[in-house]
């Protein structure tokens, strides 16, 4: 497949009408991006890639795994990474490469010369590059998904200090076993670190509770108790209260309060703090 003269022909073909090709290419690629990138930005990107591609083609190599295409591959990886981060769809990303094919076909058709062999070679080469882009695109997507699930696990379980000796964990969203486990460990660690004797688990933001989650909550409370701290559960929604009773889950002697405010007041009392309203502001 490596035929230096042919390689030069293809490179020459592209180089000869570079400006026209790039303009048409950018036009085709831009139409699918629906204005999420400016045309100038796209023009800069594609122009850079075009130059690198023509350089690689002029070496005569037609295998994108060759060293000659190293720069082109890096550029494509960068391109697909930014596209994936910006939330472009796979086909919107790949079309950036495939649009060049159409631009070249149109050029050859218009010229009427029979660049048939070059076209076939270029076509399969661009297919390979397109696939390369796509592969990298999906890899980046997977990275993003993994990152996000990790962040979710870490960020959504803060342990906050409400008062000297009173900690709270406001839970938001869906609770599953893995998350409840993280909550449990974080809360218990925080109890040891801060020496707080009162903890509040607030589940106002929790939309659903099943037997497993309830079980985990109970375990957390029991574990805290074993360590010498007291745990209050607050913010049970009406539907959740019905579910808990319907499922026959026994909360036993665990203190539950309707709102976080009630739980805080309870915790303060247990910690020996009195909250007193001032009778007169101007005293």
């Amino acid at each position: 497949m490596t035929n230096p003269t042919q390689g030069d022909q293809l490179a020459d073909l592209l180089r000869g009408d570079a400006d026209e090709l790039i303009r048409r290419w950018v036009g085709l690629a831009a139409s699918s991006l629906r204005g999420r990138m400016t045309e100038a930005e796209l023009d800069r990107e594609l122009r850079e890639f075009f130059a690198v591609l023509v350089d690689a083609l002029s070496t005569g190599s037609r295998d994108i795994k060759d060293d000659a295409y190293a720069d082109a591959r890096v550029l494509l990886e960068e391109l697909s990474r930014t596209r994936a981060r910006l939330g472009f769809s796979p086909s919107e990303t790949a079309v950036g490469v495939f649009a060049l094919k159409r631009a070249v076909f149109e050029l050859i058709e218009r010229r009427g010369n029979d660049g048939f062999r070059e076209v076939i070679a270029l076509s399969s080469l661009l297919d390979d590059l397109g696939l390369w882009t796509f592969e990298f695109y999906s890899r980046t997507r997977e990275e993003i998904i993994t990152e996000q699930s990790e962040q979710l696990l870490e960020l959504t379980t803060p342990v906050v200090k409400l008062w000297d000796g009173v900690l709270a964990v406001p839970l938001v969203g869906t609770l599953d076993s893995a998350r409840t486990q993280v909550v449990m460990e974080k809360l218990l660690e925080a109890l040891v670190e801060s020496g707080a004797e009162q903890a509040i688990i607030d589940i106002t933001g929790v939309l659903a509770v099943d037997t497993q989650v309830a079980q985990h909550l109970l375990k957390t409370v029991m574990a805290a108790r074993l360590m010498g701290a007291e745990c209050t559960i607050s913010g049970i929604r009406p539907q959740i209260a019905q579910t808990i009773v319907g499922l026959g889950i026994e909360f036993g002697d665990i203190t539950t309060k309707a709102s976080l405010a009630d739980a805080l007041l309870h915790a303060l009392r247990r910690a020996g703090v009195d909250v007193v309203r001032r009778r007169n502001q101007a005293v």
Binding site: E189, L226, M227
Partner: peptide
């Protein structure tokens, strides 16, 4: 009075179903 129980120990005891 039992003092200074570590979180991991507390979790283990709860998982074992032991109450003190």
């Amino acid at each position: 009075v039992v003092v200074g129980m570590r979180p991991a120990v507390a979790i283990t005891l709860v998982e074992l179903g032991l109450t003190l």
